[in-house]
Amino acid sequence: MRRRKIIGGLLSAFLVAAGLGSTPALAQSDGSSSIKVGSSGLPIPRFVSLKSARVNLRVGPGTNYAVSWMYTKAGLPVEIIQEFDNWRRIRDVDGTDGWVNQALLSGNRTGIVAPWLKDKESTVPLVASTAPNARRVADVEPGALGNVKECDGAWCLMRFGSHEGWIQQDLIWGVYPGEIIDD
C-alpha cells in the first residue's frame, strides 16, 4: 500500500510570510504547574484556535491598543495565558504573545505537527492505531496543521484533510503533555 505524505505547504508559506517560521518553538507549557481559572471560569493556560482568517494581535486588551501583528489563517492553535474582560492574551507557536478579542477564538482544538523539526529532512508517522507496529496511514511533514479529535495522554487522533490517524502527543504543538481530550 502506498503511503501518503501530508505537507504543511500552506501553513509553511503562512509561517514564513508571518515571520513565525524563522525560529522553532520549543516552549510549550508542560502542564505540571498548577492550573488557574480565569474570569471566564475556564482554566488558564489552555489551547484554542483562531476562528477568523484575519485576527489582530494587540499590545493591550482593547481596541485602543496598537495592532502588533495580524494572523491570516483561521484554525491556528494558540494558547490563552491571561484573561481581562472579553480580551484574551494569547501565545502562538513562535512564542509571540498579545491580546485578541474572545470572539475571534474558537474552542476547536487544532495542532501543528512538530514545528521544531521544520526545515529538517523528516516526517512524522500518522498511524491507524496506538498499538505497537500499527499500520502507517501517512507521513506528516513538520509544520502541518490538523484537527485534534481526541488525546489519551500519550497519543492524539488527528485529521489532516481526508486522512485520520494517531500521532504521538509529544509531537503536537497545541496540546499539553498528558492532556486528555475527548471528542
Rank of each mutant, 00 (worst) to 15 (best):
V113E: 05
R4V: 07
N86L: 07
G9H: 13
A53L: 04
T130V: 10
L26R: 15
V113A: 07
P43V: 01
D30K: 05
I167H: 03
S49F: 07
A13Q: 07
N108W: 04
P45S: 13
K149Y: 13
S129D: 07
V55A: 10
G107D: 04
V113H: 10
K5V: 07
V48W: 04
K36I: 02
N101F: 03
E179S: 09
N147T: 00
R89G: 03
V124E: 05
K118N: 11
G31W: 01
S162P: 02
V140Q: 10
S12T: 07
K73H: 14
E83Y: 02
A138E: 06
D119Q: 13
R136V: 15
A17I: 12
D139C: 09
N147V: 01
P43R: 06
G95E: 05
D119K: 13
G19W: 02
R58S: 05
E164Y: 03
G41T: 03
A18G: 15
G62S: 11
S39C: 10
P24A: 15
V67N: 14
M158Y: 01
S162A: 11
I44R: 12
L50V: 12
L57C: 11
A144Q: 08
S12K: 00
R135S: 09
G60N: 12
N133W: 09
S33A: 10
E150Q: 15
E179G: 11
G161Y: 09
E83D: 03
N133I: 04
L50Y: 13
P142C: 15
G165L: 04
P177V: 05
G8K: 00
V78R: 12
R88A: 04
S33G: 13
K73F: 04
D152R: 06
T96I: 06
E179W: 12
A138W: 02
P24D: 10
D152L: 06
N108Y: 05
I6K: 09
I172M: 06
A131R: 15
R135H: 08
D152A: 01
S40V: 05
S49K: 15
L171M: 14
R89C: 06
A134P: 02
S33H: 12
L104H: 10
W69H: 13
L145D: 05
I181P: 05
P177I: 09
